[in-house]
Structures are given as C-alpha cells and as structure tokens.
Simulated scan of single mutants.
Amino acid sequence: MGVAIRAADGRDRELVVRLLDEAFQDDPVSNWVFPGEEYRRRTHPRLMAAFTDAVLAEGRIDVTEDGTACALWLSVPAGDHAEDRSTAGAATEEGDDAVRLREAVDPENERVERIARLAAEAHPADRAHEYLWMIGVAPGHQGEGLGTALIQHVLDRCDSEGLPAYLEASSTRSTRLYERLGFAFTGRTLDLPDGPQMWPMWREPR
C-alpha cells in the first residue's frame, strides 16, 4: 500500500492518546465501561492514556507517518501469565494490576477493574506471541486500509520469526478484518456482565 510506518516514542504520547480516544469513543466496549456520552467523553481519555503509557514502557507503538493511525503491541513470552489462575497468588497479582488501573483512571468505576481482570484471564499463556493490544484510526481516515497496513507490518515479522499473534476484537465488524489477516476466533467469547462480547483471536505464523 505504500503506507509509511514508524515506531512512536514519548514525544508521540498525546497523538496516540488522541487517536485511541477518537477511535474508541463509540466502541461497544468503551460504551460499557463508561456509560453515558458526557461521562465517557470526560473519562475515556484517561484509560487510553494509561494504555499508551503501559505500552510505551513495555512494548511498541507503531504510527503512520501522517499521524492518522496507531497500533499498540506487546511481546508476550511463554508463561507470562499464571498457568493455574485458580491459585491465590495469581488472583492477587492480577487483581493488583486491575486495581491500580482503576485507581489511575476512574477510582469509583468497578468496570475498569472488571474488564482488566477478564482480559487477563482470557489471555493465552502457553506460547510466546505478539499481542495487538489496541489499534486506532482517526475517524476521518477509517476504511483507507491504514489499520491493515499497521497490523501486517508486525505480522510479516511474526511470519519470519515463527511467532503467533493474539488480539481481542471488540465488534463483529472488526473480527472480519482480522480474519482476512489470518486470525481465527479461539472459540470462547469474553462476555462483559450485562454488556457486549469480545472475541479473542489467535493467528498462527505463516
């Protein structure tokens, strides 16, 4: 496609937060976490900022050169999550991370903590993989293939290195995009209480 892509750094933080906020304001999961349009517009950017800071510190953020799209990736080693999630130690460790996220973003909002716990529980643990945490495209540029270019940029490396990839799709529309890129539904949805579903998807290297 000829889309120019570069690795983001701390100077791109506000750009990435803005892209994610704009891209996910009307997402079904964001609507569940932050019900009510005014409340969501006021609070949602803080969650996107927390995600951006986490990935800037521990992963990689790719952005298009024109600043219209970004993708957040983490390299997850095998065994990064507890194999037996019924143990008290694993529950405490995960709970602490979820509590810290809630306290940083919206202390009175239990749903911030809940979604962090559910996502951690669903995340595969047995094989090293690349994790597409989030991908955001500015609303005026959606449908131009920018998201596909950003994802394929990392999938090409996955294929050359024999690495799988993983993500959670937040809508049936996005699952179709990911299927075209080789991802397949794992077979078990992530069901938010009284809310929408998410679709964990896995891709074997080609």
Score class of each variant (00 low, 15 high):
Met1Leu: 03
Val3Cys: 08
Ala4Val: 11
Ala4Asn: 13
Ala8Leu: 05
Asp12Lys: 01
Arg13Thr: 11
Glu14Val: 00
Leu15Gln: 12
Leu15Asn: 09
Arg18Cys: 03
Arg18Lys: 09
Asp21Tyr: 00
Pro28Glu: 10
Pro28Cys: 08
Val29Lys: 07
Val29Ala: 12
Ser30Ile: 11
Asn31Pro: 03
Trp32Lys: 01
Gly36Cys: 10
Glu38Ser: 08
Tyr39His: 11
Arg41Met: 15
Arg42Lys: 03
Thr43His: 01
Thr43Arg: 09
Pro45Val: 04
Pro45Asn: 05
Leu47Met: 14
Ala50Tyr: 09
Ala54Ser: 13
Ile61His: 12
Gly67Pro: 14
Ala69Lys: 07
Ser75Val: 08
Gly79Leu: 12
Glu83Ile: 07
Glu83Thr: 10
Arg85Trp: 15
Ala88Leu: 12
Ala91Cys: 06
Thr92Ser: 08
Thr92Asp: 07
Gly95Phe: 01
Asp97Phe: 10
Arg102Pro: 00
Glu103Leu: 07
Ala104Pro: 03
Asp106His: 02
Asn109Glu: 04
Glu113Cys: 06
Ile115Val: 13
Arg117Pro: 00
Leu118Ile: 13
Ala120Pro: 01
Ala125Asp: 15
Ala128Arg: 04
Glu130Thr: 00
Tyr131Lys: 03
Trp133Tyr: 10
Gly136Val: 07
Val137His: 06
His141Gly: 03
Gly143Leu: 00
Gly143Phe: 01
Gly143Thr: 05
Glu144Gln: 11
Gly147Ser: 07
Gly147Ala: 10
Thr148Phe: 10
Thr148Met: 10
Leu150Lys: 04
Leu150Tyr: 05
Leu150Pro: 12
Asp156Met: 04
Asp156Gln: 08
Cys158Glu: 08
Asp159Ile: 00
Glu161Tyr: 02
Glu161Asp: 14
Gly162Lys: 02
Leu163Glu: 07
Pro164Tyr: 08
Tyr166Leu: 01
Tyr166Ser: 01
Tyr166Lys: 04
Ser170Met: 12
Arg173Cys: 05
Glu179Pro: 04
Arg180Leu: 13
Gly182Val: 09
Thr186Asp: 00
Thr186Lys: 03
Thr189Cys: 10
Leu192His: 02
Asp194Lys: 00
Pro196Ile: 15
Gln197Met: 06
Trp199Gly: 08
Met201Pro: 14
